[in-house]
Amino acid sequence: MIGIEAIGTYLPARRIDNLERAAGFDCDEEFVENKLGVLEISQAAEDEDAFSLAANAVEDLRARTGLEMDEIEVLVLVTQTPGKLIPHVSARLHGEIGLTDRCACFDISLGCSGYVYALTVVKALMEAQGFRRGLIVTSDPYSKIVDAGDRNTAMLFGDAATATLLSDRPVFEIGRTTMKTRGASHRELMSTDSGNLHMNGRAVFTFCAQNVPPDIREAAELNGVTVEDIDLFLVHQGSKFIVDTIRNRLGLSEEKMPFGAVAYGNTVSSSIPLLLAERVASPESRRIMISGFGVGLSWASSLLTRVA
């Protein structure tokens, strides 16, 4: 059985204080603290990009686990902000961290649903191929495509990367996954001709509020449990307001569905593994529901179960 063994993370050192600049965006402290929920966003330095953030996350994973790179049989990198389009970022990372020629390597272009999709795809691939060790890296420096003057996005998105080790010695088993797409609504969250990110906040909010709660219930049912059986819900950290809305619609407590992106913001494909990394070593949560949603528009939910 292939599942999650460990997670490494990387957050750039630079922080932008949202409270200091709130007035410039015609909003107040109450809005920043209770609606956005993001007091600071993490931001990559000028010379950092998806590749360098990813390399730092893998280095953190290596420091945590003592992982030998020649054991890795597949590397998949999730990003929508690769910088250079050719070659794929995972190929550059493959060379940087010293993986072998026998290691399969490709990128997945997905945003906030990307981690849940990638877990499902890579687990299936590894089990089909008989692989024992694989890496999923998420890396999205959205600051490179966010218009610094755009109220809808500039105060929200933070930069980060994570590296998840999948192996045959898992801490978490990966359950069955819902994987959905509504391509007809792709214009609500997309890059414009200028390359900047455009987000129709109302449309994205409505999409999340109406589709994510039933999707979580469906994923629970798919895995033979009910919402009440689940210890913790780690959903994409779009904003505090969207997490609160999803939580209220499911009738859950803040403890069961926390908002944890206060100090770094919405980190796209990295938001779920950033929260999950803290929980790998702590045994209190046996069943964890993860749910990602965003660009596409797409959404996906899956159940992680701690291996006894």
């Binding site: 909003c27 809005f31 609606k35 129709n200 906040g201 109302r202 449309a203 909010f205 409505t206 509020a209 109406q210 904003s239 307001f241 809305t245």
Partner: peptide
């Protein structure tokens, strides 16, 4: 606030069966 207005209009659409374009 603006986000509260998003939520209000979502509830209005759901409860009163109308669509409110942007």
């Amino acid at each position: 606030q603006s986000l509260d207005k998003f939520n209000l209009f979502l509830l209005v659409e759901e409860r009163h069966g109308v669509q409110i374009p942007d």
